[in-house]
Amino acid sequence: MKNDWRSRNHPAWWAFLVHRVSGVLLTLFLPLHFLTLATALQGEARLEATLRWIDQPIVKLGEVILVLLLAAHMTGGIRLLMLEFMPWRDWQKSLLAVAAGLTLAVGLAFLLNLT
């Protein structure tokens, strides 16, 4: 028999989930990113149109989410590297809090810069 969410409900499991989901979403985003950049190859007008499309508020919101995903995935990755390569015992939870805090800080910085 397998475990259910009552067993998984603790901070480090959630950190794993955030890391995995942000990783998958970023992977899905990457080809889109290249496609938009590739419009430059089809002339200035195409690129301009794409850039204008990106300027819509709803797409901007998407950008904030993207920055949050990037920040979450990066801080989560640094956390894992620290857990695995540094001698440790008791401060794993603080590390998690630092990762979450940094993610939010980066997201906010980006958001404020936009407006």
């Binding site: 067993s7 603790h10 480090a12 894992l80 857990l83 015992r89 794993q92």
Partner: peptide, 18 residues
Amino acid sequence: HTHMTCTERCPKQISPTA
């Protein structure tokens, strides 16, 4: 996968993750 559920649940407060 560093879920750390083992460390969370160990009744002897051992950290197998470590």
